[in-house]
Design a binder for these strands. Structure first.
Length: 294
DNA sequence: TCTAGGGGACGTCAGGACCG
DNA sequence: CGGTCCTGACGTCCCCTAGA
């Protein structure tokens, strides 16, 4: 079946998902973490987030040249400020890359999973089941969206491209398209649904509402409906509109998620390098400070 | 060559978050 | 408070690859 045929199939084949199935999904969802999706199998090069590495790399540059480092972490939510003394004697205050401004998307669900397992093992009563469901509900509470997290990261580290909020449509310009300057502009999927912009200096982020036919809603105002048939048509139209919106939203959400994961991976890489350099520096200082044996 | 399995992408549903 | 947005989870399809 071709991609187009498959899409057609997906459109016409409405899956019957029962409530029971959904509830079981909820239970299983606790054990599912983003980390599972952020494996090394993630396709590379679709959307690059080079600015993070570049910015943090700049910080690494200071770190590498430093002779003495005095670090201080102001606590959770505040990035560590590091005093770096350059070889020239000049002291520079650097906002370190080691910071925990946000609850980790990758780690927290796993921790919560352990908590759920512990509760389930130690409590059997019906009352505990109620408590369990409450706790599970708390655990399932939504964390901040990828857009928010990434934007907060962007504000912490200048130079990281922000994910733009949707803008109102304006005539004459492509609506709801935010542009970001990135070195590589490959933005496509294996299905080719997104056009590759290989020779363009920017890639485009389409807001979920971009491709929506606004006129669909405008065309059928409730006042103009009379017969049950018209009501049914209106209901169908609304449903299709909602599905179309959600389709676009899901695509956008997946794109943001990928970008976010890439951002985290870049960060991990930078932190690993920095950690290695700090260890080397520590060894050097140990050698200098230790009394000579011979 | 065939097949099983892994992985990516997609559409859909459900429900929490957010906003006017 | 209702409408909309966002995202986790699921099922499905397609592609690729290793092994028989």
């Amino acid at each position: 079946m071709s991609k187009c045929g498959r899409k057609k199939y997906m459109r016409t084949n409405v899956r019957q998902m029962t409530t029971e199935t959904v509830e079981s999904q909820q239970d299983r969802s606790v054990t599912h973490s983003v980390a599972e999706h952020s494996s090394a199998h993630m396709q590379t090069g679709q959307i690059s987030v080079p600015t993070l590495a570049q910015v943090l790399g700049t910080e690494l540059g200071y770190s590498a040249r430093s002779v003495s480092v005095a670090g201080s972490d102001t606590g959770r939510g505040s990035p560590a400020v590091t005093l770096v003394q350059l070889p020239s004697g000049q002291t520079v205050q650097v906002q370190g890359v080691i910071q925990t401004p946000h609850p980790s998307v990758i780690q927290s669900p796993q921790i919560q999973t352990v908590q759920v397992a512990t509760i389930a093992e130690t409590d059997d009563s019906a009352e505990s089941e109620v408590i369990d469901s409450h706790k599970r509900r708390e655990i399932l509470s939504r964390r901040p969206s990828y857009r928010k997290i990434l934007n907060e990261l962007s504000s912490d580290v200048p130079g990281i491209p922000k994910i733009e909020e949707e803008k109102s449509e304006e005539e004459g310009t492509p609506p709801n398209i935010a542009t970001m300057a990135v070195p590589t502009s490959i933005y496509q999927t294996s299905t080719g649904q997104y056009t590759a912009t290989g020779d363009m200096p920017t890639y485009q982020i389409r807001a979920p509402t971009t491709a929506l036919p606004q006129g669909v809603v405008m065309a059928a105002s409730p006042g103009s409906l009379h017969s049950p048939q018209q009501l049914a048509e209106e209901a169908t139209r609304k449903r299709e509109l909602r599905l179309m919106k959600n389709r676009e939203a899901a695509k956008e959400c997946r794109r943001r998620k990928k970008e976010y994961v890439k951002c985290l991976e870049s960060r991990v890489a930078v932190l690993e390098v920095q950690n290695k350099k700090l260890i080397e520096e520590l060894e050097t200082l140990k050698d200098i400070c230790s009394p000579k044996t011979d």
